[in-house]
């Protein structure tokens, strides 16, 4: 028999029922439970329901066929040529947009860091693309490419890029550049602002030490600036990639995936399948594939990030 009483494990006076909630493993989760429950309701429940659609036949044109069908949708996807075309386009659309947004955004961030006359004004101006509703931006860009009312095709003709001033959105071989241009314009500010913040957090002394050590401009950039930016670059590129891969607004408004599916990406394909063909089951199945691809991508990138956490 022990004479010492451990307070934590003393029998609860209000009854045995409470004891389980006092266990040190469970207790913290109880305090968190309001937010956990909320997150489950808002995120996980819809997610699970959405995923469950992928295994059901839910088409408004075939209301009698509704029911569980197992992996049938995925077998269809496996043979769907439009799906593969959209998948290729998704890669093309996403990586071209991200690479251009990133490199131009980084360039702009370096310009802003260096400072120039009228910088404050310019810095405020940079946010403008975000203030405009995306549908409006998309329409504006579509008009800009239209040779009847917009100047872009005439300029490209004058520069010798086009043989004659026609609408590139109507040419299957180059239509994708239209939404990509709009998307780059729209996405540069994000990279410029986040990378500028990261640039400004690099101590001036690093640059001074590098100057004394004899580094050229390029060496300073590659051996000091980039390593310092690396963690930020990885995280922003990941966020943007996932976001752009899912971003259907520009393409939907500018080309609706056409002509001849030349600008169809998975997210527009999903959108059109769900809301034009009203086949929610198949749309959900394609969404699940996209989700898995993006999860794989994010995991890879986060693994890479661990290599960069050395800085900071």
């Amino acid at each position: 028999m022990s004479l010492t009483t451990n307070k934590n494990f003393a029998p609860d006076q209000k009854g045995q029922g409470w004891k389980i909630f006092k266990s040190p493993k469970l207790e913290p989760f109880l305090y968190l439970s309001p937010s956990i429950i909320l997150i489950c309701l808002v995120i996980f429940v819809p997610l699970v329901i959405g995923i469950s659609y992928a295994f059901q036949s839910i088409s408004l044109f075939r209301p009698s066929d509704t029911g569980w069908i197992g992996f049938e949708h995925f077998e269809d996807i496996y043979q769907d040529r439009k799906f593969y075309k959209s998948l290729r386009n998704t890669f093309w659309w996403t990586f071209t947009s991200v690479i251009l947004q990133f490199s131009l955004g980084l360039g702009l961030a370096m310009l802003l860091k260096a400072g120039f006359k009228g910088q404050k004004f310019f810095q405020a101006l940079i946010f403008l693309p975000w203030a405009v509703p995306t549908f409006l931006s998309a329409l504006t860009w579509a008009w800009l490419f239209n040779p009847v009312i917009g100047p872009l095709s005439h300029w490209m003709f004058a520069l010798g890029i086009l043989d004659e001033p026609y609408n590139i959105l109507a040419d299957p071989s180059i239509a994708m550049y239209g939404p990509i241009a709009a998307n780059v314009w729209f996405g540069i500010p994000f990279f410029a602002i986040t990378l500028l913040a990261a640039l400004q957090s690099i101590p001036d002394e690093m640059y001074e030490a590098a100057a004394i050590d004899g580094a050229s401009k390029w060496q300073v950039f590659s051996k000091i600036t980039l390593p310092f930016l690396a963690p930020m670059i990885v995280i922003t590129v990941m966020l943007r990639t996932v976001w752009i891969a899912n971003f259907a607004d520009f393409i939907y408004v500018m080309t609706s995936g056409g002509p001849a599916n030349s600008t169809q990406i998975l997210s527009t394909y999903i959108f059109l399948t769900a809301f034009k063909k009203l086949d929610f089951g198949y749309a959900s199945a394609v969404s699940v594939v996209l989700l898995v691809l993006l999860l794989i991508f994010a995991t890879l990138l986060l693994k890479m990030r661990q290599k960069f956490v050395r800085v900071n």
């Binding site: 101590p203 002394e205 001074e208 030490a209 590098a210 100057a211 004394i212 050590d213 050395r310």
Partner: peptide
């Protein structure tokens, strides 16, 4: 002359070591 062409070494008060 730029610092790199002066061939001098400097020890900073906060050391300014490259953290990475």
């Amino acid at each position: 002359l730029a610092p790199r062409d002066r061939d001098i070494a400097m020890v900073f008060q906060s050391y300014a070591l490259y953290p990475h």
